[in-house]
Design a protein around this nucleic acid. Sequence first.
DNA 1: CAGGGGTATGTCAGTATTGACATACCCCTG
DNA 2: CAGGGGTATGTCAATACTGACATACCCCTG
Lengths: 117, 117
Amino acid sequence: MKVTKRNKLKNNGWVVGSTSDFLGLSDEEEMLINIKLTLASELKSRRQQVKITQSELAKRLGSSQSRVAKMESADSSVSLELLVRSLACFGASQAEIGKMIIGKKSVKKKQQSTMAK
Amino acid sequence: MKVTKRNKLKNNGWVVGSTSDFLGLSDEEEMLINIKLTLASELKSRRQQVKITQSELAKRLGSSQSRVAKMESADSSVSLELLVRSLACFGASQAEIGKMIIGKKSVKKKQQSTMAK
DNA sequence: CAGGGGTATGTCAGTATTGACATACCCCTG
DNA sequence: CAGGGGTATGTCAATACTGACATACCCCTG
């Protein structure tokens, strides 16, 4: 599994659509990152909406403040799985998660990769 | 992280909406499993559509036949991440992935958990 | 300037996930 | 029955992810 490039990405304040392009990320990786960024910012805004601190959220998740911070910044050490689980903890339904991933403003056309039908 | 229960689930031929209920899975875990089942079956059907074997797909993914089998059966040892990555490899766009997760027929109403707004 | 609440970053030991491999289990067709 | 192509299941060493902890970095307000 290639993590090398992802580790390079010190992506913090991101605008959710303009990821990479200039780094040589494959389409798949790029999409994955995009998804993570989307969920991450959704998580952050949901937490802020409820006005709780990262530490409080951490407690409810059975995690730690530092990990919450990493989640919210879509740190390369957090898995999609954890993000989804956390959103679920805020009451996000499966359908809502799906919608988040789709995203309001579609951001980039993708032509598919090596094997599309 | 609790994996114990998930390991119990020898879920193979699943109808994507009727998961668990009778096992004491938390809502979050249940949703996660549902998502995985959905993506897994999508992956399988896409592979079949293109008429390639698990081994061929494995090669393209840089993985192995056994892992592909596990993915397609939503084995508890495969991550959401891997499923998404694999679907991406078939040319699935971010939006398509989102739609898959939403699912055609909504299956279950969820009332949210401890902290929803 | 000092302290404090909130957030970010780094590290680490424990756990989970991964690809590879072996092997078993189907069908088939001969 | 024998082989073979495809799929499933189990195991394992390597790698990735996780929570916890320490610590730094903001703001503030006093």
